[in-house]
Write a protein that binds this DNA or RNA. Structure first.
Lengths: 203, 203
DNA sequence: CGTCTCCCTGTCCTCGAGTACGATGCGCCG
DNA sequence: CGGCGCATCGTACTCGAGGACAGGGAGACG
């Protein structure tokens, strides 16, 4: 199967070298400026830090989107920027320094005509329309945990204190600490905040 | 790179044969019933027409989601069912008779820990929130916070310690505490874990 | 029976988080 | 000028979290 030309639009040589790993899947070409995007290109990975990048509200974005599938890559991604990028007509939004595997996946999805946003943005959208995903966003976190450890971890990740959890489960605060220590050990985190971020799919 | 075991859960032999194309990327195993999903599996493609499938509101779904990444495959997909599936804890929703390439992509994305929904559902979500999110470009949670408070809150919500934040911003740990106290007060939360949950849209 | 895992509980101890008092300096605005 | 919001920093204090030692009981399995 033959892939279309992929344009890497960045002013940063370091970033460009990272992105060149994509050359194993797509024929690639480098662009240094937004205005210099090749006319015939169908696929582009665009650095958010490009000097001459128009603001995401600019009408040039949707115009360009008509003929070019764009992935917006930010070095400091946030949900607001991501939504703005998608609304501007980009087909994908990701971290500029994502792993080559991740980048490949994003470009792959976008090339196939789908949209790609990270799970945090997607979950934000779901919550916005009242369909919050009750289940943990990062399935698999509880794989090696015992039943009791999962219960404790779930509550801790929602902000309950050890005393709260103890009361809710009808056990001692000491036992809660015991279970949590096991959870931290198995999941490789240091405290309940890191646990929460892991359970809810952030970081 | 070694892939985890992929469970194909369907009662339909014809569908199972189609899905077996995935065997080129993942070691696969067949399951005929929802109750018969292998205990150790991490990844499953689940046919919406399985005879003993619980309704998507059933608590067994989110429980299962804790240890298993599930793709819900419907032979007659619609946006409502897709949202329900995601809400139930599934990590992906797609057409049961999608092309092998498409299925591979979906499973690939889900395996990497992301969520997958099709273009139509995503676009519908965007439209649903698009009208509301024109004016408030501000993150929302940061509306009443000062610039500095936002910076501190953002880092605290990602799990950085006060000392980390102080070092990163070139200020004293005492000042970080000061800003955080103001943040807690303005956002009506008690500690940094509650702040993190609020910032990331959980609770 | 011995071993194993899981669940439960206890007492210290350390450390970071958060609050309660305070303080100084800066820029803006009526 | 005087008030006000903002950013900065100091000391002392309380309190919960988490680790470092423990231990006992129930059930599974060879």
């Amino acid at each position: 199967m033959t892939h279309p030309l992929l344009v890497l639009a960045t002013h940063d040589d370091h970033l460009a070298r990272r992105w060149h790993a994509l050359g194993e899947r797509w024929p690639i070409v480098r662009a240094n400026r937004f205005d210099a995007l090749p006319a015939g290109a169908r696929l582009a990975l665009i650095d958010a830090d490009l000097p001459d990048l128009p603001p995401l509200g600019d009408p040039r974005w949707p115009r360009l989107a008509a003929s070019l599938r764009m992935v917006f890559a930010s070095s400091r991604p946030n949900d607001g920027e991501g939504l703005a990028a998608i609304e501007a007509g980009c087909s994908g939004y990701c971290h500029a320094f994502a792993s080559p595997e991740q980048l490949t996946q994003v470009v792959d999805v976008v090339e196939s005509g789908e949209l790609w946003v990270g799970r945090t943005i997607l979950n934000r959208l779901l919550r916005a329309v009242g369909h919050a995903s009750k289940a943990p966003v990062a399935p698999g976190w509880a794989a090696r945990l015992t039943e009791r450890e999962q219960q404790v971890a779930q509550r801790a990740a929602l902000g309950e204190s050890n005393a709260d959890i103890a009361a809710a489960l009808g056990i001692t605060e000491r036992t809660v600490k015991s279970h949590l220590s096991a959870v931290f050990e198995k999941m490789g985190v240091a405290d309940r905040l890191q646990l929460a971020l892991r359970v809810h799919g952030i970081k």
